[in-house]
Write a protein that binds this DNA or RNA. Structure first.
Lengths: 298, 298
DNA sequence: GCAAAAGTGTTTCGGATACACCCATGC
DNA sequence: GCATGGGTGTATCCGAAACACTTTTGC
């Protein structure tokens, strides 16, 4: 990064809001692929665009980088402004830099993966200006820009991160049942696990602690609730594992779903073909699920 | 990424080389953390800066993004221009976006991890304009900008990638001995493995194929040479596993090392403190070393 | 001969797998 | 009652770990 001449922004030229450079520069934006978990399926938070390119289409929340912030601060700010979410897990994921990816011109996008707890789901409803809605990750509408590609690659990356870090807790409330934890692993890895083996693996790994918290209501036998074991988890994860002032357990009620009819889009972007819907899902071994512990203990 | 007004670059304003935008934009660069392996240690390729900020200091090769290329193309181009390397493994790693990270102004850096085979080591010598030298990854000189931080985080990331992808082959020639493969895993993970267990794990995983190629020379008993098993490896890795026109086996001779005296830098940035140099390295289990196979078979 | 690295095999042990029964709740 | 999900236990088996001797080269 050093072959060109040093460039100083020769600010306020003649008119206001004119920034002059000796070499062309791209706009830089951050876009967030926001994953959620509703107790049974992986969800994605999208916003309806209110601006000109792709107006009315669904898109990833995001916005342009400002000179006084890092790209992480930018992502967190846009998340707050557009979806009212704060204190969510955020991780850089990939830069998209195809010169033609944005019809407005030369715009790079830093894609982030964001993970939202169920207790934060309804925060979005509080922001009246918001046009954000949760979609099932397998049933997405057509997306603006190259966002469909970004989402697909983010889902693949999510599997990788799940091996490297205990991010499953960032998709769960402070208190959760082992069934929920298992389901998170299942929907991300797109498989199923033997309930008894999974339970034992989790407990022997020591990544959870049983609590005395009682579930508020349950359709069946009420599960025991656990929480993440902070002693074993990376310190920088801890902030994202739970909030402080949330109810101990809410059973995924009153979700804000996408009520719109987006069938008018001609090209559907469902990832799962209909024919294979009833194919029996092969059960996977639980081996290696918590490999991330190896990264901490060295 | 969409809340601002669309901005068109209002090119050639009055004078040539003047680019005017309504909002400030950062310069975007790509910097490469280039890893090599000399048969016993992890190496890092650095260049001596010939320009003004940090002139004479060592730095990561890199350069500014141009409007007609992706960030990957930029990284590959700068690598070629500054170190004469081509067809190396390149992977996005992290964006560094601290507004103050570059004294010249607002410069983002997309950091890449690059992996170089021993057969490409001496390519660098062919480029007379090059000021590139290989350093031991544990004995680095002070670096320009925030490059020391980038290198440290890249080494951590390298461990993660090693779990996710068969990148060890990208640090080896087309033909290699199992001892070399083991050493790559050892220097990256900073541990040792039982030779017999490692050998068996590799062969049972099926990621290598024995060949009839004979090593050119050996100080001890000559090892059998293997090559990566393409049937089991991801297709997009294949291009980076070996070159076509290289000698079948060269035993790491005549390396281009850094001959300079950089002791004049007052602050040393060695990562390993001297006191712990002789501490016995604990042997690690080979379990999970080739977990990346799980990502391909699904 | 000797040092250094390469090649090979067996025993053992732990942990993952496969599998079945009972429990608590809402309806 | 009964459907649904939660909790617990065991026999088995595979694979990883631990470990030693021989072989081949350069010097």
């Amino acid at each position: 990064m050093n072959n060109q001449q040093p460039e100083q922004p020769k600010q306020p030229d003649t008119k206001p809001n004119r920034y002059v450079y000796r070499y062309p520069r791209p706009s830089v934006a951050s876009d967030c692929v926001i994953f959620g978990f509703d107790g049974s399926a992986l969800k994605l938070l999208l916003i309806e665009r209110g601006q000109k390119p792709f107006l009315g289409a669904w898109a990833l929340p995001g916005g342009f980088l400002r000179p006084d912030e890092t790209i992480e601060e930018c992502a967190a700010r846009e998340l707050r402004e557009e979806t009212n979410l704060r204190n969510v897990y955020l991780e850089q994921f990939k830069v998209y830099s195809d010169p033609d990816r944005d019809p407005r011109g030369w715009v790079l996008s830093m894609a982030f993966i964001a993970l939202v707890r169920p207790s934060d789901y309804n925060v979005i409803a509080g922001d009246d200006a918001s046009k954000a809605f949760w979609f099932k990750a397998d049933e997405l509408p057509p997306l603006a820009f190259d966002h469909h590609r970004i989402v697909c690659e983010a889902r693949e990356r999510l599997k990788e991160i799940l091996v490297l870090k205990p991010i499953a807790f960032s998709l769960l409330n402070k208190y959760f049942s082992l069934g929920e934890l298992q389901k998170v692993y299942e929907v991300i890895n797109d498989t199923t696990y033997d309930r008894r083996n999974f339970t034992r693996s989790v407990q022997e790994a020591g990544i959870v602690e049983a609590t005395d918290v009682k579930p508020q209501k349950a359709r069946n036998r009420p599960p025991r609730l656990y929480r993440a074991n902070h002693n074993l988890l990376a310190p920088d994860m801890e902030d994202f594992i739970y909030d402080s002032d949330i109810p101990p357990y809410d059973q995924y009620v009153e979700r804000v779903e996408a009520p719109r009819d987006w069938s008018l889009f001609n090209e559907s972007q469902k990832t799962e073909p209909e024919e294979l819907k009833d194919a029996p899902i092969k059960e996977s071994p639980t081996k290696g699920l918590f490999n991330f512990l190896g990264f901490f203990n060295k």
